[in-house]
Design a protein around this nucleic acid. Structure first.
Length: 421
RNA sequence: GGAGAGGUCGCAUAGUGGUCUAGUGCGCCUGUCUUGAAAACAGGUAGGGCCUCACGGUCCUCGUGGGUUCGACUCCCACCCUCUCCGCCA
């Protein structure tokens, strides 16, 4: 979340930012509620102070009667405050993070500037299939039975693809740990307070998050949740920073409201496995840390020889907690482009610098060597999202004879170099 | 899941309705002493909100949330976590 004091003191900037980011939150309303809240708080505290001094020592009968009235008054005001406080919290959580000055202001989500492109899209001397057609032909996924057992947008991985899941995890872990990241396997569920502190909205309308009935737990949509919550309510020492983590988890998404979006095969699913990088750094280091994470993502996909490009999210496409976000988009020969032809770029990784937005929400600080305490900066980035990477491999490395070759960097984890039947 | 014990200021402990605005020890910081250090002695040692230019004031937090009471670390209820034993289980 943002600092309410900052919002109060920079109203125009916040309003402008909120508009640029197409966030659905009324700043004037927030400020009004905030004022109301502080007014009530002041009254309550004055009354409490009165009661505290009166009740210090044993009061007389008349005094008790008087204090009781004060108590009743406090209770009434507290009841008035409660809904105000709730509304205030709700509104404050909806205010998006500040935006990096280099981010392009746009109201078009598909307007993300292309930073660079690595490898040209692969040219085929035959009509390439999409991953669904190919995978079913080669008995690598089973969507029909997944629909029977779990519903639409679930899948079984079979044969070589099932094994590839683990090879990709190992490949990503090997590269990322080489850069000094500590490996983790995390819980797949987390508490509402953690989700909210990180800027996610687990219980709102059209949420992307599955909630567990009769509990305050949600299925995580990314290990960003569990690794971001890892140091909740902690004060880290300056010398232990940066903390660099890489975590394997399952990710669950309801995909509410995504009916019109591309969802062939396993492109858009309710569950997938992902290896995620997460960092806690000093404020002055977050910009460089963000670049480093992006470079690791590039290293991973360059290693796989998958064509990709890097895009820089516009204000319209930034998530609530992000200050700046870069995506890698891989070339997917089977995905139809806007003109309906086969072959398009598709998001395969995403890395965000959330600066102090999440650390404020979760109360994560660091103590500098001279004893000062300050909020840390928090960043996340995909090392590898298995499902979409499988799509990229299957589609890009398909051969005319219907087989699929496996990128060389993965060979050491596998007993096969080609998928054929 | 059942039975029992417990969760207090960085750590360890005391506190069973009103000098607890939480004591003591350790640790840490400052000072005295010392060439320096140690020891000894003295003092200081949480976080957050609100008001204030500031000095400062005030409120909240003893696992969490409710309740009883003029007043709750202390009493009642629910929940969470840890430990021991039993049961179940990959």
């Amino acid at each position: 979340m943002l600092d309410i004091r900052y919002i109060r003191e920079n109203v125009e900037e916040i309003k402008n930012n909120t508009k640029n980011r197409k966030a659905d939150v009324d700043i004037d309303e927030l400020l009004k509620i905030d004022e109301e809240r502080r007014g009530l708080l002041q009254k309550i505290e004055d009354l409490r102070a009165k009661r505290n001094t009166s009740s210090k020592t044993k009061p007389s009968t008349e005094e008790i009667e008087e204090i009781r009235k004060v108590g009743d008054e406090i209770k009434t005001l507290e009841e008035t405050l409660r809904p105000v406080e709730e509304k205030y919290q709700k509104l404050l959580l909806k205010v998006p993070n500040l935006t990096h000055p280099e981010v392009k202001v746009s109201d078009d989500e598909d307007d993300n500037p292309i930073v660079e492109t690595h490898l040209e899209p692969i040219k085929f001397d035959f009509e390439p299939l999409d991953h669904e057609e190919l995978s079913i032909k080669l008995d690598l996924i089973d969507l029909a039975r997944a629909a029977k057992v779990s519903g639409a947008k679930f899948y079984y991985l079979k044969n070589e693809l099932a094994v590839l899941e683990f090879a990709l995890i190992q490949y990503a872990l090997e590269i990322v740990t080489k850069h000094g990241f500590t490996p983790f396997v995390t819980p797949d569920l987390a508490k509402t307070e953690v989700l909210e502190g990180l800027g996610f909205n687990p219980r709102g309308e059209s949420t992307q998050i599955y909630n567990i009935e009769n509990s305050d737990l949600s299925l995580i949509g990314t290990a960003e949740i569990t690794m971001g919550g890892y140091h909740k309510d902690e004060t880290l020492k300056e010398k232990e920073l940066p903390k660099k983590y890489v975590a394997v988890s399952h990710c669950f998404r309801t995909e509410a409201g995504s009916y019109s979006k591309y969802s062939k095969g396993i492109f858009r699913v309710h569950q997938f496995t992902k290896v995620e990088m997460f960092e806690y750094v000093k404020p002055e280091e977050s910009e460089n840390a963000h670049k480093e994470i992006l470079n690791i993502e590039k290293e991973i996909f360059s290693g796989l020889t998958i064509p990709y490009r890097v895009v820089d999210h516009t204000t319209a496409d930034l998530g609530t907690p992000a200050y700046r976000t870069f995506d890698l988009e891989a070339w997917m020969p089977g995905k139809p482009n806007k003109e309906g032809e086969r072959g398009d770029w598709a998001e395969i990784t995403s890395t965000s610098n959330c600066i102090d937005y999440q650390s404020r929400g979760l109360n994560i600080k660091f103590e500098s060597n001279d004893g000062k305490k300050e909020l840390v900066h928090m960043l996340n980035g995909t090392a590898i999202a298995i499902g979409r990477t499988l799509i990229a491999i299957v589609e890009n490395f398909q051969k005319k004879d219907g087989t699929i070759s496996i990128p060389e960097v993965l060979h050491k984890y596998l007993s096969f170099k080609i998928i054929s039947r």
